[in-house]
Design a protein around this nucleic acid. Structure first.
Lengths: 156, 156
DNA sequence: CTATATCGACAACCATGTTGTCCATTATAA
DNA sequence: TTATAATGGACAACATGGTTGTCGATATAG
């Protein structure tokens, strides 16, 4: 009893759904004063969070090399979303924390995502959307942040 | 009457779902004799299809520049998934068609995607999965192939 | 016949990954 | 306490996949 639906549409729709939300987020974010932040940056800022992180830590949280995380941190610092700090207990560590601007972008992102979800709720109905989220939870890994974002395309 | 669910989880789950399927596809594809094909390649092969395409055409189908499409075609040709042909009616055009190996990878991909969908059907139930697909169709653009895949991350 | 559009080829550049090496610093074990 | 190991950060070299811009060859429209 196999389905008549081709399997290739499922990944496409999942990706398009992601794309639609992320594009809408960044359009709105740009309108609200953050035109420079890119999806990679958003994930990094989220992963750094209020506690701050070193490049090596961020790399582990994101599932990329510490060098790659370091480059992301560099550009985020250049854009004014992070400020660097030192750890008095460990002279090796260079901790990066969200600047005010960084925290603002994160807060705005959260509000925009909530708004976008509300639009989907409008379109699909609250029950269906909840079911969709529940179903996706069942077929995806638990840890939501360690998404290995930047490496998923290309490469070995 | 807003939902208690945070909006940021939705894009994450959509992406993770995509990731899970694509990773599983390429694991299995590697096992079945295609260890070198990458997600980008899969989309390109799909877009080239049985009719073949030039670099400029592929670029339009995929929503990237003809130069970017040309690079993808180069690597696919190097890997033996495409063969080049000429157009007797237009000396400028260099048409690329699927090699036997290319067609084989596409056929295997389709079978694997069907299998993966069957596994989700097992996990979620046929009704729920159909509902999930229907709902995603309602919130995503119609044209499923022009996915602008490679450009969605980074860049302006 | 001439003007315009398109194709493919290059080059230069950017962003984001990767590995590998190296030194300074910290932690650990003998 | 001291030798060894692990960690953090910097830097270099490289791969991939995107971009724009230019340019000559070929087609097509007027």
């Amino acid at each position: 009893m196999s389905s008549d639906r081709p399997g290739f549409e499922l990944p496409l729709r999942l990706f398009l759904g992601f794309r639609v939300l992320i594009d809408a987020l960044h359009d709105e974010l740009a309108r609200q004063g953050h035109p420079d932040v890119r999806p990679v940056h958003g994930f990094a800022l989220q992963a750094i969070g209020s506690e701050g992180a070193t490049a090596a830590e961020l790399g582990r949280r994101l599932g990329v090399s510490k060098q790659a995380a370091g480059k992301t941190i560099d550009s985020l610092e250049r854009l004014g979303y992070l400020v660097r700090d030192t750890d008095p207990n460990d002279a090796r560590r260079k901790v990066f924390r969200l600047s005010e601007r960084g925290a603002d972008s994160l807060a705005k992102s959260a509000a925009i995502f909530d708004q976008l979800r509300a639009e989907w709720e409008e379109a699909l109905g609250a029950d269906r959307l909840r079911a969709l989220e529940d179903d996706l939870r069942r077929v995806t890994p638990a840890d939501p942040l360690r998404v290995d974002i930047p490496g998923w395309f290309g490469h070995t």
